[in-house]
């Protein structure tokens, strides 16, 4: 870990859904820290529990979900057991979020102005006109031309990329300390994905905002993140600096993910694609959840669940102690 200050840490988080056929353990023993000002990438196949982790930090879980163990600590204070009102006071002001689909993230019957000024006035003691001024300045900052006129418009009058810029403005309008960006560019045209991502990165670096960037695109991770957590079937299997994860992945699953990044001009010995698919939460295997798909599995993988162990580079949850590079 860096010498940087930890702003939020998730410790041994377990989350279950109550279900007719008993409880579904959707998150098991999730632990990671977010350091002041960093961009932490969270990757993994869909269904790995990335969004759930984000929702748990936001305090926006469905009624059917319950945190059964562990805690979430924000600036030294435990927040997962706060009452609704104190939780709501944190949302937007301290911890904010950006969701996947810009087309559905904005309220269709309220103007951009109404949505922005309401958010600003909820958290800051400003007058209506000061809030409007701030809102226009924000829109200009995220790259909306003629912000003063366009702020009067409704969401449907903007393109997808523009809407995601507005969503970013909304999420960052009162300078939160942490932003949870859940696949913020997945729903966008490829041509604008990178622009929006760079915008998010620039704003967060300028304001010192800490970001949890959820994605299943390893290319995005390599482009903007400082550190990366890799999730598989409700667990964190590897976490470390982006350089280490990309160059020297330790967990067989991470190795497979890295291999899916197309790289120009790099010739390397290709590992075979990860075969099979992630198990459903109701039919998880014993031991390491990845072992049925793992090409390096060894004696004990199907009985012992590995914990995250710090190596010289990343922290990894795998029973093997020889690095994969030695295997190849």
């Amino acid at each position: 870990m860096d010498d940087k200050q930890v702003i939020l840490s998730v410790k041994g988080l377990c989350l279950e859904f109550s279900h007719r056929k008993g409880a579904i353990k959707a998150l098991r023993d999730i632990s990671f820290d977010m350091c002041q000002g960093e961009i932490l990438g969270v990757v993994g196949e869909s269904g790995a529990g990335k969004s759930l982790t984000g929702s748990a930090i936001m305090g926006l879980l469905d009624d059917s979900a319950a945190i059964t163990a562990g805690e979430i600590v924000y600036q030294g204070q435990r927040i997962d057991n706060l009452d609704d009102a104190s939780r709501q006071a944190l949302r937007g002001k301290e911890i904010s979020a950006i969701f996947q689909d810009p087309l559905t993230s904005l309220n269709p019957v309220l103007t951009i102005e109404e949505q922005l000024t309401e958010t600003i006035l909820t958290h800051l003691p400003l007058s209506q006109s000061e809030a409007l001024e701030k809102a226009i300045a924000l829109l200009e900052e995220v790259g909306i031309a003629q912000a003063a006129e366009r702020i009067k418009q409704y969401p449907h009058q903007f393109s997808g990329g523009m809407r995601q810029r507005i969503v970013i403005a909304l999420a960052l309008c009162v300078d939160p300390f942490i932003v949870i960006a859940d696949e913020p560019t997945t729903a966008l045209d490829v041509s604008v994905q990178s622009q929006v991502l760079q915008l998010l990165k620039r704003l967060c670096k300028q304001h010192g905002t800490t970001v949890m960037l959820v994605t299943h695109d390893m290319g995005v991770i390599a482009e903007v993140c400082d550190r990366v957590a890799v999730m598989y079937a409700g667990e964190v299997v590897e976490i470390g600096k982006v350089h280490d994860i990309v160059k020297h992945p330790q967990h067989p699953y991470t190795v497979g993910l890295m291999d899916s990044i197309p790289r120009i001009g790099v010739r390397k010995k290709r590992l075979s694609q990860i075969s099979g698919s992630m198990p459903r939460l109701t039919e998880l295997p014993c031991g390491c959840k990845f072992h049925p798909r793992c090409q390096f599995k060894q004696f004990g993988c199907d009985t012992t669940t590995p914990c995250l162990k710090q190596t010289t580079t990343t922290a990894v949850a795998c029973l093997r102690d020889i690095s994969i590079e030695e295997h190849i």
Binding site: M58, L60, Q88, A89, L90, R91, G92, K93, S96, A97, F99, D101, T104, S105, L106, N107, P108, L110, Q115, E118, T119, T122, H123, V167, L170, A171, C173
Partner: peptide, 22 residues
């Protein structure tokens, strides 16, 4: 259950405004 309501909650908009306005 709409996304924009979830996003409004994520921005800390008060429950009252969410229910009776949004």
């Amino acid at each position: 259950r709409a996304d924009y309501i979830r996003f409004a909650k994520a921005r800390g908009i008060s429950e009252r405004s969410i229910k009776y306005k949004h």
